[in-house]
Amino acid sequence: MTGPGLRREVRAGWSLFRRDMLKFRRERARIVSSLLQPIMFLGIFGLGLKNVLGGTGPFQELDYIQYIFPGVIGINVLGISMSTGVTIVADREFGFLREVLVAPISRLTIALGKVASGVATAMFQVAILLLLSPLLGLTPGFVQIVLLMSAVALLAIATSALGVLMASRIRSVESFQYVFQFMLFPLFFLSGAFFVLDRVPPWIAFIANLNPLTYAIDLFRHILYGDIELGELSRSLLLVNSPAEDILIIAVISVVLLSASVVSFVRME
């Protein structure tokens, strides 16, 4: 693909992205409901379990609600960006996908445009969630916010690509949602989002180690707990890997999922 060809593809990809943003803006109900879910998590788990777990182990130094906040961000990113896949399946059901597929543009462009939409929506939602952070006693500065947003984008590439990959294989919105729900649950709970993974059985640890969310949430914690004084023991329990390890692993997962989703989307009938 040379000069003018590339410019065409960029324009087409941009128009796919713009369409998603336009629709996202019009669907206020979707924005509100996808924000209610993390708030519910914070409320129910955060406040509910705070009294059970509060004052034990690392939670002597860190509020439990502060502990789950990075996890809630991670889960929100996962949920939103993967539902980008739903928009592809819905476009297929309602016919619009044919308009896209028969256009003189590359399938690669279509897949990347969709991933970009997933990343942007996820970043938007996280930006709103961050407004809650002062209520939880976390006060990220400008640099922390920029770092966190970059980490969110990195994770969202992996999860949006997963959504596109699923969409290229699944024909109906119902099946997509079914598979999505099925995957969501283990990804949520086996990620260190809600509890420290130091005393879990090996098989849970194994799954958690394959879960990109585990590393993303660890990375979010590194970024968000910058100002909090933590003892050596708490540190080792709350922050499992180094930030560099986290970034490297998420990046590798992103590249793998992105390649797989593009290949699968290009081959789709």
């Binding site: 324009r11 087409a12 941009w14 128009s15 796919l16 369409r19 336009l22 629709k23 019009r26 476009d91 309602f94 016919g95 619009f96 996908l97 044919r98 308009e99 896209v100 028969v102 256009a103 003189p104 543009i105």
Partner: peptide, 30 residues
């Protein structure tokens, strides 16, 4: 693909967009 226009049997419009927005999308991808 560049030389043809197509109207399929079943609608391929995005009904959550306006008529004009559907045309603009088409103009972008073509």
């Amino acid at each position: 693909r560049e030389s043809i226009g197509i109207v399929f049997q079943d609608t391929t419009l995005d009904d959550a967009l306006t008529g004009w927005e559907n045309l603009r999308f088409h103009a972008d991808v073509y």
